[in-house]
Design a binder for these strands. Structure first.
Length: 908
DNA sequence: GTAGGGTTAG
């Protein structure tokens, strides 16, 4: 070695007779330069200076390059300034690009660039400008990036915007959430400069379109690329697929990826991560794991992004433990952790309220050398706010980084807690911090002001948005409409709604809000108008499916089943009518007696490829039975099998009730046997129905067979059972038998119902067994159930109740008259079907098989039908029944009072 | 040039 590489050797060299002329010095420096010993050069240079050794331009130039190469940019710049004579513009290029890309300080690079152009009159290369644009855009510093672009456009510079610039700027605008500006920039460039974008710029454009929710427009761009012979690549396809992930159209995500592979373009780790993320976002974590496995199998190593997609999916499903498991695995696999990974978990545990875990993770993150950004703090604060601990979040926010989201979070927390002082001081802090309001903050503030009842302020804020450069979005409109509706200010809501519909925003939620508000405020007609408008707009969005239910329920409640029918059959295919909506309309049509319409609707629904379930068909079956269309009911039962529907207990029970009611006992028994064969155990109500049918024919033997059957199956008879059998005896004229049966069950503490008593008393009277009739009447008047029923008639009418009146008649031995009164009561309380059809069926749930519902059907339908056939009706009953049905109980009572006074008059 | 985290309505 000729040269000892120790810096102190200069002294030695000089002592040894080294001639200090620039030439050997430069040779020596150049030698060091080739060895990349840049630090030695600078050190050696300082020694040369100290020893007044001679240097020339080349020496200085070498020193400058050494400073640049060792990234000592500030010193280099200083030196270049003081030694302009040796400064070549390449040096400026290296300096600025170095600061930008090596130091990652594009802002400083811009400062140097500006100084260079304006002060030194040096023009760096276009590549340098591009590098600064790229550096600034990558950091989202778009304001500064624009400064560079302006500089490039200056006279005397006039550098063109190439693909590198365009792609950087477009993606930069996307990064700061302003994709439309990126697109605008691109349009300007192509219109002015005639740039023909390459695949990289096109990919940036795809990203912008996707972020603007215009994934559909990508097709056109891709077609253009294909016409131009530009090859697509995996990056472009990944960007495109991401757009569909955003829109939650997984089919298209798949479609694009398949298309890519078919074109011979292979996946990479990003494209696989897009798929993993896509499934994770849809909540199908299992499928995500399939792709994870596939990508590993193909040799693409999943990274922290891939795993964080999975963790995020677990957290969103509430499976934070599973997310934590992924986190632990990542550590085992030696995969680098970053703030994203921690924030996902901090957010997950925070939403659950597990703050030990939250703070534990926070510590672990800091110990791992990751310094928390505002995002991490916001996640912690949001957790606290969501668990009623907004004040603690507020405390925490005092000493850490804050942004507009911090304040939105706190404000929202205080709003939820209805903490008005909290809202006010947060609002003040936001203003003092000088943070510009964004649209989310504005929406949160609107909600807060509504909560405070500050409607004037709400209006002022809403109207003042334009001045703040804020454009209301669907959430704004929704919040406003909902806020006004909730306090009954429909006018305000309608004003906002009108403004909303003048925008191009397509939001079913806004329609939802106004329709809901209109319905709640009794403005059904206008609500229907809004619904139809939505329908006619042909919203291409995937609309939440419960939408028209409001209207349908209103119409049905108002008894307008036919209007509901028109609505579900007459509107366009894209109206989000769902299965449940059809089902409730069919049910309403059945209950309203529009059986044919109900059947039409069934056919309509089936034509659409939907299949109705047995609950709906039970409703139809019940309707057919009530119209006496038993043949059709039977046909329907048969065709259920063809529709792959299994008849339920309710199906059989409904048919049995109807058959018994109509007197088709043999058919009823047939269905009964079938029901048992199918494995159903008929309940007491079904037995009662059969017994009731049997009783009309006085078939005592059959009645006893059924009673025995009940006994062997441990089915307890009830008051209706007893009444039916008593009626059966009465029909046969066997009053002795009836009486004995009555006492037998009385000992078992099972008494007949009102009608059982009435049959018995009436039968005994007919036979002249007045004392026994009187005894039973006395017992009837001691039966709580019977007395309650009797007294419905004259509640609040007279000081003396009807039961007391009957008791008086009974004690006076006026049993015939008492029976007349009882007959009238019976006719009044159970008027014929035609008057109150809905009282028979409304409120029934044919889908449920529990005891309660079966009982309802029996007591309402069967009991009612049986009695109404026994009696006729007249003016009073129909009037009273109609009033009862309308819920006008006082008027009904008045009529009852009139009727009773007439009756009493007759008897006296 | 492409992928993952924190705030708003219903």
């Amino acid at each position: 070695m000729l040269f000892h590489p120790r810096p102190l050797s200069l002294q030695t060299l000089l002592k040894r007779g080294f001639t200090p002329t620039p030439k050997p010095i430069n040779r020596f420096l150049l030698f060091l330069f080739h060895l990349h010993k840049f630090d030695l050069i600078t050190h050696f240079f300082s020694q040369l200076k100290a020893n007044n050794a001679p240097t020339n331009h080349k020496t200085l130039s070498l020193l400058t390059w050494a400073l640049l190469k060792s990234h000592r940019f500030e010193e280099a710049e200083q030196f270049m300034y003081t030694h302009r004579e040796i400064t070549h513009s390449f040096m400026w290029d290296t300096l600025i690009q170095g600061i930008c890309t090596k130091r990652h300080d594009p802002e400083k690079a811009l400062t140097f660039l500006q100084r260079c152009v304006r002060d030194s009159g040096v023009l760096p290369s276009s590549l340098t400008f591009c590098a600064v644009v790229h550096g600034l855009s990558s950091k989202g510093l778009m304001g500064r990036a624009i400064e560079v672009l302006e500089l490039m456009g200056d006279d005397g510079v006039n550098y063109p915007f190439d693909d590198f610039v365009c792609s950087s700027v477009i993606s930069g605008f996307c990064r700061v959430g302003k994709p439309e500006l990126g697109l605008g920039f691109f349009k300007n460039v192509t219109e002015c400069g005639g740039l023909r974008p390459n695949v990289v710029t096109c990919t940036a454009l795809v990203g912008a379109l996707c972020k603007m929710g215009k994934v559909g427009e990508v097709c056109g761009l891709v077609q253009w690329m294909e016409r131009e012979g530009l090859g697509l690549d995996v990056v472009l396809y990944s960007a495109w697929a991401c757009g569909y992930v955003e829109e939650r159209v997984l089919g298209e995500v798949f479609g694009r990826m398949r298309e890519m592979v078919e074109k011979g373009i292979g996946h990479d780790f990003v494209s696989y991560t897009v798929l993993v993320d896509g499934f994770s976002k849809l909540g199908d974590v299992e499928k995500s794991f399939t792709f994870l496995a596939k990508m590993i199998k193909e040799g693409h190593r999943p990274n922290k992004v891939t795993y964080s997609a999975i963790m995020s999916a677990y957290c969103k499903k509430g499976k934070v433990e599973d997310a934590f498991g992924v986190f632990e695995s990542m550590k085992d696999l030696g995969i680098e952790l970053d703030e994203y990974v921690f924030v996902i978990l901090i957010d997950g545990f925070g939403r659950r309220g597990d703050f030990d875990k939250v703070f534990g993770l926070f510590d672990e993150m800091e110990k791992s050398g990751i310094s928390p950004s505002v995002v991490a703090y916001n996640a912690v604060m949001n957790g606290l706010c969501k668990h009623g601990r907004t004040s603690e979040a507020d405390e925490l926010s005092r000493n850490v980084a804050k942004d507009v989201i911090t304040y939105s979070t706190l404000l929202h927390g205080y709003t939820e807690e209805e903490n008005i002082p909290g809202i006010l001081h947060t609002k003040r802090r936001l203003e003092e911090a000088g943070i510009a309001m964004d649209i989310v903050m504005c929406n949160v503030l609107i909600k807060a002001l509504f909560m405070m009842g500050a409607f004037e302020d709400v209006y002022a804020l809403y109207k003042g948005m334009a001045e703040m450069d804020l454009v209301p979005n669907s959430v704004t409109y929704c919040t406003m409409i909902d806020g006004y509706c909730k306090v009954g200010r429909i006018d305000g809501a309608l004003e906002v709604f009108d403004e909303f519909r003048r925008t191009s925003i397509s939001s079913h939620a806004c329609y939802n809000s106004i329709i809901n508000g209109l319905c709640k405020n009794g403005m059904a007609e206008m609500a229907i108008e809004a619904l139809l408008e939505l329908s006619h707009k042909g919203l291409e969005l995937d609309i939440a499916s419960t939408f028209p239910s409001f209207i349908l329920k209103i119409l049905i409640k108002e008894g307008r089943a036919l209007d509901a029918y028109k609505l579900v059959t007459g509107t366009q295919d894209n109206l989000p009518v769902i299965y449940v909506d059809y089902a409730i309309v069919i049910d309403a049509l059945c209950k309203g007696g529009y059986l044919n319409k109900a059947l039409d609707l069934c056919a309509f629904v089936e034509e659409k490829g939907m299949s109705l379930n047995i609950v709906v068909y039970n409703s139809i079956l019940n309707g057919l039975c009530h119209e006496g269309r038993l043949i059709e009911a039977f046909r329907l039962l048969d065709s259920l099998e063809k529709l792959n529907l299994v008849p339920s207990e309710i199906t059989y029970a409904t048919l049995i009730y109807a058959l018994c009611r109509e007197g088709f006992l043999l058919d009823a028994e047939h269905v009964f046997r079938k029901m048992v064969l199918k494995g159903f155990q008929p309940k007491v109500q079904v037995y009662n129905s059969l017994l009731d049918g049997i009783s009309k024919f006085g078939q005592l033997e059959k009645a006893f067979e059924l009673l025995n059957d009940m006994g062997t199956k441990y089915i307890e008879p009830d008051s209706l059972t007893v009444s039916a059998v008593i009626n059966c005896y009465c029909q046969k004229g066997d009053m002795q038998g009836a009486l004995e049966f009555y006492y037998k069950f009385k000992r078992k503490e099972i008494s007949p119902d009102f009608f059982g008593f009435l049959y018995l008393i009436r039968g005994l009277c007919t036979k002249g067994r007045m004392e026994e009739a009187r005894g039973v009447l006395r017992e009837m008047l001691q039966s709580k159930h019977a007395v309650e029923l009797i007294n419905i008639v004259n509640k609040e009418v007279d000081t003396e109740s009807i039961s007391d009146f009957l008791a008086t008649l009974c004690e006076q031995g006026r049993v015939h008259e008492a029976v007349t009164v009882l007959n009238e009561i019976a006719r009044m309380l159970f008027p014929v079907q035609s008057i109150v059809p809905s009282s028979c069926t409304s409120g029934l749930n044919f889908g449920s098989c529990d005891d309660k519902d079966v009982r309802n059907i029996t007591t309402n339908n069967d009991g009612h039908m049986r009695r109404s056939q026994l009696h006729g009706f007249d003016f009073y009953y129909s009037r009273i029944a109609a009033l009862c049905a309308k819920g006008e109980l006082q008027k009904a009572n008045q009529s009852a009072k009139e009727m009773l006074s007439d009756l009493t008059e007759c008897m006296n």
